[in-house]
Amino acid sequence: MPVRRLNHAVLWIRDVDRSVAFYADALGFRVDHVIPGRAAFLSAPGSSNDHDLGLFAVGADAPGPEQGRIGLYHLAWEVGTLGELAGIGARLVELDALVGSTDHLVSKSYYAKDPDGNEFELMWRVPRADWPAPEAGLRPGPLDLQAAIDRWGQDLATGAAAGSAT
């Protein structure tokens, strides 16, 4: 029996209040429950999950994630429109959290790090009809968000926002 989707993610963090503030401000998560100083459970707007993100504090002196080490590299959250991706990207720049971007051909993505160094991706799914054929031999490259907006507009909802699981 196959899995269907990621239900929630749990991160080790240093400070509950700081991480809750970041995820609420940067990504619009709402706080479902907080155990002061120890843990918090947050949900994305419109989510039907009990929670989408769990945060568990391990202390201010805990070492952060290290690139190239065994463990989770990043999580990817889907946004519904290119306008939403642009807005979140601008907020991540203001928070000095944006670390990169990529045009994956089937998605347009920003990469960022939270205050503890946990990396995450924000992605918009290209309409399935516009995915390149595998035999085209195309490779991911730099993100040109304005070109994507010029092609699909800033308000075209795709993926889960359009009611699609593919």
Rank of each mutant, 00 (worst) to 15 (best):
Pro2Ala: 03
Pro2Met: 06
Pro2Lys: 04
Pro2His: 05
Val3Met: 07
Arg4Tyr: 02
Leu6Ser: 11
Leu6Arg: 10
Leu6Glu: 10
His8Asn: 13
Trp12Thr: 13
Trp12Arg: 12
Trp12Lys: 13
Arg14Tyr: 08
Arg14Glu: 08
Asp15His: 02
Asp15Ser: 11
Val16Glu: 09
Val16Trp: 01
Asp17Ile: 08
Ala21Thr: 01
Ala21Arg: 05
Asp25Gly: 03
Asp25Trp: 00
Arg30Tyr: 05
Asp32Trp: 02
Val34Tyr: 06
Ile35Tyr: 09
Pro36Asn: 10
Arg38Val: 14
Phe41Leu: 15
Phe41Gly: 09
Ala44Gln: 07
Ala44His: 06
Gly46Leu: 00
Ser47Thr: 03
Asn49Ala: 15
His51Leu: 13
Asp52Arg: 08
Leu53Arg: 14
Gly54Phe: 07
Leu55Phe: 07
Leu55Cys: 05
Phe56Lys: 09
Phe56Cys: 13
Gly59Asn: 14
Gly59Arg: 12
Gly59Gln: 14
Asp61Val: 12
Asp61His: 13
Asp61Gly: 14
Pro63Arg: 14
Pro63Ala: 15
Gln67Trp: 14
Gln67Lys: 13
Arg69Thr: 01
Arg69Ile: 00
His74Cys: 14
Ala76Gln: 11
Ala76Thr: 13
Trp77Tyr: 15
Gly80Asp: 00
Gly80Leu: 04
Thr81Pro: 08
Leu82Lys: 06
Glu84Cys: 03
Glu84His: 08
Glu84Gly: 03
Leu85Asp: 01
Leu85Lys: 03
Ile88Cys: 08
Ala90Lys: 02
Leu92Asn: 00
Leu92Trp: 00
Leu95Ala: 02
Asp96Phe: 07
Gly100Cys: 04
Gly100Tyr: 01
Ser101Lys: 06
Ser101His: 04
Thr102Glu: 11
Asp103Val: 07
Asp103Cys: 04
His104Cys: 06
Lys108Val: 00
Lys108Ala: 05
Ser109Gly: 04
Ala112Gln: 08
Ala112Arg: 01
Asp114Asn: 08
Pro115Leu: 09
Pro115Gly: 04
Asp116His: 07
Asp116Asn: 11
Asp116Arg: 05
Glu119Cys: 14
Glu119Tyr: 11
Phe120Thr: 03
Phe120Arg: 05
Leu122Ala: 09
Met123Gly: 10
Trp124Asp: 08
Trp124Leu: 10
Arg125Met: 07
Arg125Lys: 06
Val126Gln: 12
Val126Lys: 10
Val126Phe: 06
Val126Arg: 14
Pro127Ser: 10
Pro132Thr: 09
Pro132Asp: 12
Pro132His: 14
Ala133Asp: 15
Ala133Ser: 15
Arg139Lys: 15
Pro140Phe: 05
Pro140Gly: 01
Gly141Asp: 10
Pro142Ile: 00
Leu143Pro: 02
Leu145Lys: 02
Leu145Met: 05
Ala147Gly: 04
Ala148Trp: 04
Asp150Ile: 07
Arg151Trp: 06
Trp152Ala: 09
Gln154Met: 06
Leu156Trp: 07
Leu156Arg: 01
Thr158Gln: 04
Gly159Lys: 05
Ala160Gln: 11
Ala161Met: 10
Ala161Asp: 06
Ala162Asp: 03
Ala162Thr: 02
Ser164Trp: 02
Ala165Gly: 01
Ala165Trp: 06
Thr166Ser: 01
